[in-house]
Design a protein around this nucleic acid. Structure first.
Length: 262
DNA sequence: AGATTCGGCGT
DNA sequence: ACGCCGAATCT
């Protein structure tokens, strides 16, 4: 029996082993296959398979399956993509590695926990609201959000969201789409109330008078009625998400059992 | 049956 | 050129 040399893999959680097997015959002789073994001994033979199993425990985004190391060369690609296809959803529909837990993949750039809808209490919701609030930001960084649109997996653009009148953009790129993204981002990233730009001076010269901790938006007020309507929308959206997660979970377990019993 | 191995499709 | 995975082959 050939002793398989399984080596520890530092880029993975403790207990994971990596193995490389050289092909010794056939047209592909000399090539090699790489396998990983979980601490429990399950064998993995591709990055997607590994990613499905690890979920968000480990970000495999820049993990090189063949070498077993973190590949720093991937950042270039991501930046390039940010221009017109920020999330890589546009086409080709990558299997989207790391899809196990719901991550808010909106304009708000940084991954955050999101409400997990279950029938049980004890949900963790935005547990760390005081994180990373004091990061330096570009003035008018919101313009990077221009043109972002919600779409489903078939690439069809979903209905656009309507903002209430009374919300008005400010500064360069003060279009409605940028405004929506800017406000959404502000709500995600700030733990203080979002008021818009309250000084009238920001109107005339935003570059000087801008309150950088507020979105590029004129000051506004929100009515109780608007809040009620929004609560309704959120409830409906959560139901949709719950159904989607359920369906996804079923598909995932179906695939897992298919692999196990294959 | 499970494990191993190479082919070959798709990118 | 290579990742991924089906399936033939082996034990």
């Amino acid at each position: 029996m050939m002793e398989k040399k399984r080596s520890d893999c530092p880029a993975l959680p403790p207990g994971w082993k990596k193995e490389e097997v050289i092909r010794k015959s056939g047209l592909s002789a000399g090539k090699s296959d790489v396998y990983y073994y979980s601490p429990s001994g399950k064998k993995f033979r591709s990055k997607p398979q590994l990613s499905r199993y690890l979920g968000n425990e480990v970000d495999l985004g820049c993990f090189d399956f063949r070498t077993g190391k973190i590949a720093p060369g991937k950042l270039q690609k991501n930046k390039q993509r940010l221009r017109h296809d920020p999330l890589g959803l546009a086409k080709g529909g990558k299997p989207d590695l790391n899809t196990a837990l719901p991550i808010r993949q909106t304009a708000s750039i940084f991954k955050q926990p999101v409400t997990m809808v279950t029938s049980h209490p004890g949900n963790k919701v935005k547990a760390d609201l005081q994180r990373a609030n004091e990061q330096p930001r570009q003035l008018f960084w919101e313009r990077r959000l221009k043109g972002l649109q919600p779409s489903d997996v078939t690439e069809e653009v979903l209905r656009t969201m309507d903002l209430p009148r009374g919300l008005q953009g400010l500064g360069p790129d003060s279009g409605a789409d940028t405004l929506l993204s800017a406000i959404a981002s502000a709500l995600h990233m700030s733990s203080t109330p979002i008021t818009g730009q309250t000084t009238a001076a920001a109107e005339k010269n935003p570059a000087i008078w801008l309150n950088a901790s507020q979105p590029l938006c004129r000051a506004f007020t929100v009515t109780d009625e608007q809040i009620r309507q929004q609560e309704l929308k959120v409830h409906q959206a959560r139901r949709s998400l719950e159904e989607a997660l359920l369906a996804d979970g079923l598909a995932r377990s179906a695939e897992n059992s298919r692999e196990e019993t294959a």
